[in-house]
Simulated assay, not measured.
Amino acid sequence: MGLVYLRELNSETKFAIWKIEETTEELLARLQLDEREKAKLESLSKGKRTLHWLATRVLLRYLLKTEEYIACPSDANGKPYLPDYPFKISLTHSFDYAGVLMSTQGECGIDLEIVKDKVLRIKEKFMKPTELAFIQDNNVEQLYACWCAKEAVYKLQGNKGVSFLEDMSILPFQYKPQGVMTLMLRKDRKTQSFQVYYEKFQDYMLGYVVAGS
């Protein structure tokens, strides 16, 4: 596994992305798994899903600077957490890459997606007409930045029943290869504002957010 990107956003928050080049056996050799995790691994379809799951756990050990066992269960909504560390975490993966975001500042979310034209076919499923109005010339990268932002906030708030289309609204922004946007989340009759950062990474788009930032 090769570290391709490590960024410290501040003293409390950092994320890393790794390119997965190892086999399942090579990744397993770097981990200690309990019985629950072994069962989880067995339940995954072989191939990329297994590699993604293993790679995020190896990456956690890198960021926490330990080769010891790290408990990383998921709650009832599938949101991972670290019961033995003060960090909030978020995991992501796409094709040959895996990513981890961790913060002591607050809940966080990260999403990595490979950029493809297929997003043009589904844009109305996750973007309101008012949001599509500021997309510049069907800019595929800008649409992916919006998708990653909504996915990142979805993960931050706990993978709970929130609609990208109905409950999230992105305010107009000028797309650049790296920037920030404002996302409004309406949930439980309350509206929250999030500053979501995005950036182009090779052939991928990356979005990340930390509560209170």
Rank of each mutant, 00 (worst) to 15 (best):
K125S: 05
Q192F: 12
R189E: 15
V162D: 08
E113Q: 15
Q174W: 05
A152I: 00
Q136N: 10
V119W: 01
K125V: 03
D111S: 13
Y97T: 00
K155S: 03
T182H: 12
L91R: 04
F201M: 07
P86S: 10
A149Y: 05
L143P: 03
T191V: 13
A98S: 11
K123P: 05
D84Y: 07
K187A: 14
M102R: 06
W147S: 06
I135E: 01
L183A: 10
T191D: 09
Q157S: 01
S90F: 00
I114N: 11
Y175L: 01
E124S: 15
S94K: 08
G161H: 11
G109L: 01
M184E: 10
D96T: 10
P86Y: 06
E199H: 08
E131P: 01
H93T: 00
M102S: 05
F95W: 12
P177Y: 04
A98I: 02
I110A: 04
Y154H: 08
Q195Y: 10
E131Y: 03
Y81F: 15
Y97G: 00
S163L: 11
A145P: 02
S90G: 02
L183H: 04
Q195N: 13
L156G: 02
E113A: 14
L165W: 13
Y81M: 08
V140M: 08
K118T: 06
Q142K: 12
N139H: 13
S163D: 07
M184I: 12
M184V: 09
V140N: 06
V153G: 07
I110Y: 02
V140Q: 07
P86T: 08
F194C: 05
S169E: 12
H93Y: 07
I135K: 00
K160T: 08
E107T: 07
F164M: 12
P86I: 10
C148M: 07
S169D: 11
E141H: 15
A145V: 03
A133F: 07
L185C: 11
L171T: 08
E199W: 00
A149M: 06
K200E: 09
Y154I: 03
G106S: 09
F95A: 14
Y81H: 12
I135A: 07
E199L: 13
P129V: 01
F134A: 07
I114L: 12
M127N: 09
P129Q: 01
M127A: 14
Y175R: 00
